[in-house]
Each structure stands twice: as C-alpha cells, then as structure tokens.
C-alpha cells in the first residue's frame, strides 16, 4: 500500500480563494441565498412548566433533592448528581447575589447596541449556594456593578406577565430601595 512518508511540514495543500464582501455585492462570485422557515414548539415539560407558571404569579420556584439537600434553580424533575427524582417544590426569594457579570455592547447578531446592557449570573436567595440563573441588571450604572452585589427582581405588572423568564424585567440593586 504505502509509498512512504513525505517530508513536508504544514503548508496548505493549495491556496484557498479568499473572498471579500464586495465579491458578493458585485456578483464576482456565484452564490445562493436561503431563508428557510424552520420553527419549533419546545415542550417545557413538568419542571419548567411549573416554573414558568410560577413566574406568572410573581414567584420563583425551585425543587429540592432530599439526598444531596440541594435546592435547585432553575427547577428540575430529577437531581442530576444523585440521579433520583427531586423530592419537593420550594418557593425561593426574588432577591439574590451577582456571581459574575458582563457589560455587553453587542446584540445577538454582533451589531453594536445603542446602550450597553448588563448581564449577570445571579444566585438566588433561598436556593443552595451558587444556584444561579442568567438574567439582566437594571437601574444601575455599569461601572457600579460588582461581584457580590445584592439584587432584587423587578417584575412586569401582573397583567403583562405571560409566564416567561422575561416576566422579570431585570434585577436592580437591593440597597437602592
């Protein structure tokens, strides 16, 4: 089979053809566009349905595993560490601590934002330590945010809540109250 190994090192086999955006705009290269209509209806399931319904009522619900004693947010039907069903539902508080944060200047499509937004992992009071969720911070200047800051959820008015994570508009510093 073998003809023996060649002594070559790392050059690309051929130069590729690099394109600039103008090549598309000026039709120097042929291409096809596609805008497929691809949609899903995600089943929330047992735990997340209950969690979302709780948000609609202005509550944050967690589940507890009696084996490892963790109170888990977001809630789940089973404890992934003990591999057993979660034992009970617990309502936790709508206050928490900033575990880490970022000041984002770009939107999901990497376009610049007019106003930077502050995103954070917030561990929830009443849940086990480090049990956090991803959310946004508001009513605070970006340079005043720090890790360890206490925050409180700012809810949408009850009539506007739809049982989504966005029923919490953002979290604001607790001491401002």
């Amino acid at each position: 089979m073998a003809v023996g190994k060649k002594d070559i090192s790392a050059p690309p086999y051929v130069e590729g053809r690099e394109l600039e955006l103008e090549d598309f705009e000026e039709k120097k290269v042929t291409y096809v566009e596609d805008y497929p209509d691809i949609r899903y209806q995600f089943t929330a399931g047992q735990a997340i349905s209950k969690f979302l319904n709780g948000l609609k009522e202005g509550k944050i619900l967690a589940t507890k595993c009696n084996k490892c004693r963790r109170v888990m947010v977001p809630p789940r039907t089973f404890c992934e560490l003990c591999f057993k069903p979660a034992d009970e539902w617990v309502e936790v508080r709508d206050t928490g601590t900033v575990e880490t944060f970022s000041i984002s200047y770009i939107d999901p499509d990497a376009k610049p934002l007019d106003e930077p937004e502050i995103v954070a992992v917030i561990s929830i009071d009443g849940a086990s330590p480090k049990m956090g969720i991803l959310h946004k911070l508001g009513e605070i200047e970006p340079d005043r945010v720090y890790i360890g800051m206490k925050v409180k959820a700012v809810w949408k008015p009850e009539s506007e809540r739809e049982g989504m994570i966005t029923d919490i508009k953002y979290w604001k510093p607790l001491e401002v109250e």
Partner: peptide
C-alpha cells in the same frame, strides 16, 4: 398547566457555489 414555547431559527444563509460550482 403544560407549557410550550415557540421558537424560530431566524438565521439565513449565503452559500458560495464553490470552485467547481
């Protein structure tokens, strides 16, 4: 009380025809 959440892939794609294409 069972919840379902709609999701749509909002991307589009531009495919070059490639060298032979």
């Amino acid at each position: 009380e069972l919840r379902h959440v709609q999701g749509r892939i909002e991307l589009y794609w531009i495919y070059t025809s490639g060298e032979a294409g």
